[in-house]
Design a protein around this nucleic acid. Structure first.
Lengths: 261, 261
DNA sequence: TGCATATGGTTCATTATTTGAACCGTTGGT
DNA sequence: ACCAACGGTTCAAATAATGAACCATATGCA
């Protein structure tokens, strides 16, 4: 493995719950030697990518990442462009809408919006990781990813997050076939209990799948009428965002969405 | 130089004007070998830090930086926290206010706000680089940085951006002494013609200077009364943001600002 | 048409950097 | 006073980075 990859995987250890990490923890979590971690963190600190904070000298992400993100959004306004669509979707359905994005090998939440229609709602957090096999967004993306990616994912051990999580590769493959035909995916308490979620895939300029947009609601609230509105809204939002991103819907998806609408 | 530093300096070549860079250009701009660049970019691509786009296979910043920025903002809401203060400052003075931040060896614009009071205003851009010796923000920061940093900067050749730019190290040192005493800095058309600008430094948790906040106005509009309001507003804003960032004013600055207020 | 010169990407012997066990000096708890 | 954990440092040994030369391809030009 390259040195750069190791250093940047160190950055991936930072999460919302674990914003500060000490040197020893960093070494334990990454499996790298403490000296290696130290040299890398020192180097990245010099570039402003991380900084040391607090009473101990624990590390956290530094201000340089803000500059990089500002430049990325200036070049490719992924998030800013899609945000209004996500908000409209949340308002029209009265439920939580969220947008996710393939980053490296994982699917991450990029943006989300709540509705104020109900006192209870499904909560989200930015930059969270979504498992492919247990979320509607994950399945929507997986259905339109190359077979090689699907094969290698299904070859690994799939964790069960709830009693309802589907972990059998054959069952998942069957669901993917359905999703390819209908153009949307659905899960039922497979990631979090009592949550029902529907998603559609999003596509980039080359026609490859780059992410998904989804709506998540408390299961008890999802009537057939609401479900229909969710699917219809997602198809429109999916087409809109794909256009905003300069992407192109695969013919099969375009046909599936046109028939349903 | 470490490999990680080289790779991340590659990322620093991306700017707003040059969002897409091809492999050969990357090698030329960085001075690194083409094979080295290729390997590093491939590695960073695997992590989503950069991606290849367009008809040619030019590189640009990838979606992973958005995730890192989201986590940084969650841990330390630098920009979000400071933004209202910058906006109030712009509204109260009727001029352009901007916040800058030390990132590695350079000073970068992090946020700015315009006022709608006048038809003409000083324009800004996010993530722009501010030269230390020719801007009020730069001088404000420099005055509170360690002597070693000042020495090494003044040892380099300082470019003149206008006829009024001060490039003589001795003259700059004299101005820094004044700034240390008063707690604020000022420039007169030293970076852009007809622009007059006032700034105060900002400080981090350790008491070290981490950035500056400034107001820039067309020179003709700066009356003594407005100038006084600018300085007073900046001092309040500087104290507020330093607090918001969990920072601490050095005693000397606290004293200077208290006396002036 | 063919020549010249770009481009992104690849190879492999040479070289320089990374690596990690063991080591400091401090700190905080018992 | 002790112990264990912390952040940080060292240096011979091992590994990964390096770069000149090399493809295949595409573009501009006469």
């Amino acid at each position: 493995m390259g040195t750069v990859t190791k250093a940047l995987e160190l950055l991936d250890l930072f999460t919302r719950e674990r914003a500060l990490i000490g040197l020893s923890d960093l070494a334990r979590l990454s499996g790298l030697n403490k000296a290696t971690c130290f040299r890398m963190m020192t180097e990245m600190q010099g570039l402003g990518l991380v900084e040391q904070a607090g009473p101990s000298k624990a590390y956290r992400l530094g201000p340089a990442v803000l500059r990089l993100a500002a430049l990325r959004e200036a070049a490719v306004p992924t998030r800013d462009a899609a945000m209004p669509v996500v908000q409209v979707l949340a308002r029209e359905t009265g439920e939580t809408a969220h947008l996710s994005h393939i980053v490296g090998p994982a699917l991450r939440t990029l943006a989300f919006a709540y509705s104020s229609a109900h006192g209870t709602r499904v909560m989200m957090e930015d930059a969270d990781l979504l498992p492919y096999h247990a979320t509607s967004s994950g399945l929507a993306v997986l259905a339109f990813l190359p077979d090689t990616v699907v094969d290698s994912l299904l070859a690994t051990a799939l964790p069960a997050f709830t009693a309802a999580t589907v972990t059998n590769p054959a069952d998942i493959r069957a669901r993917l076939a359905t999703i390819r035909a209908t153009g949307w995916s659905e899960t039922h308490a497979t990631f979090e209990a009592d949550v029902r979620s529907v998603a559609v895939p999003l596509f980039g300029a080359s026609g490859a799948c780059t992410g998904a947009i989804a709506i998540a609601a408390p299961a008890a609230r999802v009537t057939p009428a609401l479900h229909a509105r969710m699917v219809a809204g997602l198809m429109r939002a999916g087409a809109d965002i794909t256009t905003l991103w300069g992407g192109q819907l695969p013919p099969a998806v375009k046909a599936a969405w046109a028939i349903a609408a």
